[in-house]
Design a protein around this nucleic acid. Sequence first.
DNA 1: TTTTGAGTTGTTCGA
DNA 2: GTCGAACAACTCAAA
Length: 434
Amino acid sequence: MTSVVWFRRDLRTRDHPALLAADKDALALFVLDKRLTEPSGAARLAFLYRCLRDLNEQLDDRLLVVSGDPVEVVPRIAKQVDATSVHVSADYAPYGHTRDQQVEAALGDIDFVRSGSPYAVAPGRVTKPDGTPYKVFTPFSRAWADHGWRGPADTDASILDWIEPPGRSRIPQDPPGVPELPDAGEAAALGAWEKFRDERVEDYPENRNRPDRPGTSWMSPYLRWGCVHPRTLLDDLTPGPYRNELVWREFYADVLWHKPDSARRNLDRRFDKIELDDDRDAFDAWCQGVTGFPIVDAGMRQLLELGWMHNRVRMIVASFLVKDLHLPWWWGARHFMKHLVDGDLASNQHNWQWAAGSGTDAAPYFRVFNPTTQGEKFDPNGDYVRRFVPELRGVTGKRVHKPWEIDGLDYPEPIVDHAHEREVALARYAAVKN
DNA sequence: TTTTGAGTTGTTCGA
DNA sequence: GTCGAACAACTCAAA
């Protein structure tokens, strides 16, 4: 008997329950879906392709990569190799969930088997005693911890006999304009994890908010594509700030599972009425990193340069878009998803909704980040700004956060008056409340 | 059913 | 420069 193992966001061979569930003779398949590739920028695509090449190597060059619509491709390939079952890790995001139902229907007599998920605890499993979902992180995290999770599954590529693909496999070349990226694939993920675990996780609480230091784990791209499963990380961790970041990932996946609409629209629908602006020029300035606020511009340029942005800076630029420019959070969310190598729908959209105040655990409406204060606080020497904003490299120390006080710089004036826009934002938020 | 305590990440102002 | 209080009220979770 033959199985198809259809890889999606589980591009690894270790700790992979779907491999255990498949028949010994298996075809490894990945489908390049336009829904995934078309909205993606060069960095995101290149990281995906490199993960696929790494996986292909582990599978003795037998990963079949096909472009097309999975609803057509998966049944066709499964029939071609005479498979009796198709094995996947379950997808809980809105598009993937619907797509899987359609694939399952199109497969007819061929079994569609979901084993495991990208989460330690699958979305929907942690509920209040009355069966309804949590809407606040802290109680969710307690219930999540009480629920517990299985240890890693013992798998590797060799537990299956990967069969020769019936057609020609083609992993695309990297697109042009790819920035410098972290090493892709499973071995790189495990290596990066061990380094963080052994050298940096201890100092994570004090370093995590410092974009000028290598204080974060950098695990998000690997978690996004499933090069490593969060179980592997959790196995090494005790409760603490870093583990909590993984729980946030699980929480937002749970929230999105219960409210698939929240990927596109306000979770708290009262915010549908908030007054928004429509200034394309301001949005472009934000995207390009020429707002005249150094920490904002450094972050936005880091995103374009590396396909990644430090989390503290993500909050700062998000607050700026939403509360200084008064633009819709989903404009920013789409830009992030296009460029971030770690862009994950649930985490991305809900972190944006948090910044906008429309999400779970809405921030107090008066919490408006001051981009200058944030810069001085979290990039105290200005090293982060100077790294990504070359025009400011001649400015020493933290003065770099107030370039408008320095004459003769070739750097934009602030596009808004923060103190004024803060008042505007507060007034608009107050209006929504009433 | 009612009550109580708590809720990721901030800023400003005045002492 | 540092520190504490004010900034509001509301929803959620659990007792």
